[in-house]
Every structure is written in C-alpha cells, then in structure tokens.
Nucleic acid binder design. Structure first.
Lengths: 212, 212
DNA sequence: CGAGCTTGGCTAATGAGGTTAGCTTCCTGG
DNA sequence: CCAGGAAGCTAACCTCATTAGCCAAGCTCG
C-alpha cells in the first residue's frame, strides 16, 4: 500500500475545493475521504473530526477573504475603496460558494491563525471606514452595518432569496451607494483625530464567549 | 396503547418549540419524536421526512414573521414604520432563534401557505418603502438592501459575530438610521405615481427555479 | 351493537455518516 | 540496518433517517 501522502493542509485544501463543488452543507468526511482516495478513518490522522475540519476550513476561508478585501482596498480611499471592497466580498462569495459560509464561523481562540484571519478581515473594513473619518465606537457601528449588509446580501443571493427579475448586480450597487452615502453622514464622520489605528477592531469578528 | 393524538400541525408546532430550545441545526426527528412521546418512525404518518418538516417549519416561521412585521408597521409611516419594523424583525429573531433561520428557506411552490407567507413578508417591507415614495424597480432594490441589512445583522449577532463591547442595540439603531437616511435619498424617492401597489413584490421572497 | 375499514401507532431492518480502537506497514533517523 | 513514529487500514459501534410491514384504536355505518 503506497501512502497517499496527505497532511493537514492538503486535507483542508481539498475540503475547500469539495465544499465549493457540492456546497458547505454537503461537505462530509466520507465524501472527502473518497475524493482523497483513502478510507474515512484515515482522515483522523490529520484532523480531529468533522467539527475540527469545519474550523480549519473557516480559518482558511477567512484568511483568503481577508486577503482579497485588503487587496481590493489597497491604494483606494473613500467611496472607491468601499465599492472595490464590496465587489471583492461578493465576488469571493460567488466564486467560493462552499467556503464563504465557513467564514461566518466564530474563530477558534485556540487557533492563532484563525484569530488573526478574523482580525485581518475586520481590520480591512476598519481601514476603509477610516477613509470616511470614522474611528472608535462610530467605526464599530459602521463596521457592523457594513458587514451586515454585505453578508446579508450575498447570503440571500446564494440562497435564491431574490426572485424578481430586477437585476441583482444593480441592486447590489445601489445598496453600496446607500452605504457610501450613509458613511459620509455617519456620526463622527470627517472628524479626524478621535482614535488611533493599530489593532483597530481586534476581536470584533468573533465573540468567543458566545460559544455554546 | 392509547394514541398520542398527533397531527401535522401539532408536530410542526412542537418542532418549532424544540428548534428554539436546541437550535435549528440540532432539530432532529429523533429528538422531536422523543419529545412527543412516540417512536421516530411514527412521525412519518404526519410529515414526509426531515426535509419536509423543515419546509413546514419554514412556512410556519415565515408566516409568523410576516404577521409581526405587518403589525409593527401598521399605523406608522416613513422612518417610524421602518424603525418599528426593524425592531420587530430583530425581536422575532431573538425570541425564536430556532425558527428564524427557517424563514430564510425558499418557499415551496407546492405549498400555497408557504408561498403566501413569503409574499406577506415582502409585502410588509414594500408597504413601508412606499412610505418613502418608492415603487417599482427602486423599491425592489431598496427591499433587497433592507432585507440584507436586517438579515445580516441578526444572523451575525446570533452567530456571535460581534465581539467588541460596543452596545449592539446602539449599532442596530444606527444602522437603521442609516437605512432611513438612504431611503429618503434613494433614486425614485418622493416621486409618486411611478408604480402600482397590489401584489407588489410577489415572488421576491423566493426564487423557486434556483432550487437544486 | 358490532363488522370492518382507516389510521396512527409500533418493531425490525437498511443505510449513510462519524467516531474509536487497535492492527499493520511505510519510511526515515540514528 | 533496524526502531519507532506516522500514516494507512479493518472492524465495530453510535446516531439519525428512512422504508416495510404488522397491529390495534376507534370511527362509521348497516
């Protein structure tokens, strides 16, 4: 029996590919094992179990998303940055329909890479909002509003929640335009010098104590 | 053996209660049967299976949500109506953490009550937006933005996605204030006479052809 | 009243998926 | 070269969903 030569990274990466193909809810250890050409219990040499695989997938997907958001916003400011980031967000969700839902899982405090990925994602959003002069509590509120709108839209879209023929792209752009207008008038906007940068938003992606 | 006296309605209602207690993802035919004091296969006399139960639960929850949204908006207009409806939406999601996720399932075209519930829910949102002078495509865009923001917020909140100490109620109210401001300046706002009322929004809650 | 049918319960059996235990074999470091 | 850890495997068991088929409760109607 030649060995398959797996390790945790190859397993998690294949899980991500499989999830994109069959859907996050249909990601199963059995299907993953057969895709990797090993027996199901062999996977336990690389991941602790189904839940741990989900968590690692979440870390991977969150890191990817954070990178794409950061890249999209780089070199842009204000409405430009917002639109670019919003497009990147929806784009990621559509290109990776199986990974995207994994990004909504709360980071595991015991997995530093996962925690850092969440912080990078929120950090990218914070950075865009700083372009509107937002910081501190106002930026937290704005971040929540932005994440809510983007996540809500892409998850409704993915779930088939938009039935009417009206162009979905147009609706998205209109929503983002509304967000841009709101942030320009947001409490605290364009009142610089109210808060520092640095680890802005650290901890906001997750709420570890809410785990059950 | 005395009979348990179940019927579809009692089964679905108990499923709703159970889902609220243990979580939508933990709703299982086995747990439901034991809660109802019958053997698992007995449930098949009342529901076709696990998926059909989810669908019926979705119909129930969507109808409840539609009623609460409609009630909240009744007798109010503009920003008042928007705020009341937004509060009702979040309130429902928090009081019924197990039913709420079920409302995101696409209505089953074969279940008229389910379809009607979805139409009532979107209709309530449309009615509020009419108070901003919105109709037609502009109202569709605005409905999508509103649903996205509300759904995104409550699902991030339920998932523990808000980690920082900043008051979540305050963030929600700020987001709703932003939506109010956006709708007042929305394309088409306060330009009446552009579209009719009636079955406005019918079909928007669902996208049956997207089912797989 | 009671014969019989419909119905709502049951047990048994099957199958998918996850998990654990414990065995074997590859292959690398000393 | 060979010892031991790592990476496979099979077997066994658990939970849950589903289907088949049996049986009795209790209603309907002669």
């Amino acid at each position: 029996m030649p060995r398959a030569g797996l390790n945790q990274q190859t397993v998690v990466r294949e899980a991500a590919r499989l999830a994109d193909e069959v859907g996050y809810g249909q990601l199963t250890l059995a299907a993953l094992a057969s895709r990797l050409g090993v027996a199901l219990p062999s996977l336990y040499k690389h991941v602790r179990g189904a839940d741990a695989l989900s968590q690692k997938l979440s870390a991977l997907a969150t890191a990817e998303l954070a990178t794409e958001l950061t890249t999209a916003a780089a070199g842009r400011a204000g409405g430009d940055a917002l639109r670019a980031m919003a497009d990147a967000y929806r784009d990621y969700a559509r290109r990776h329909p199986g990974r995207y839902p994994a990004t909504q899982r709360v980071p595991d405090p015991a997995d530093p890479e996962h925690v850092v990925a969440g912080e990078r994602a929120v950090g990218a959003i914070f950075a865009v909002l700083r372009g509107y002069g937002l910081s501190g509590d106002d930026a937290v509120d704005a971040t929540r509003a932005l994440r809510s709108a983007l996540h809500g839209f892409v998850s409704l879209e993915a779930g088939g929640g938009f039935g009417l023929p009206r162009d979905v792209d147009r609706s998205y752009h209109q929503m983002v335009a509304g967000l841009d207008a709101s942030f320009r008038r947001w409490p605290g906007a364009d009142q610089p010098g109210r808060g520092g940068a640095g680890l802005a938003g650290a901890g906001e992606w997750s709420y570890p104590s809410a785990r059950d």
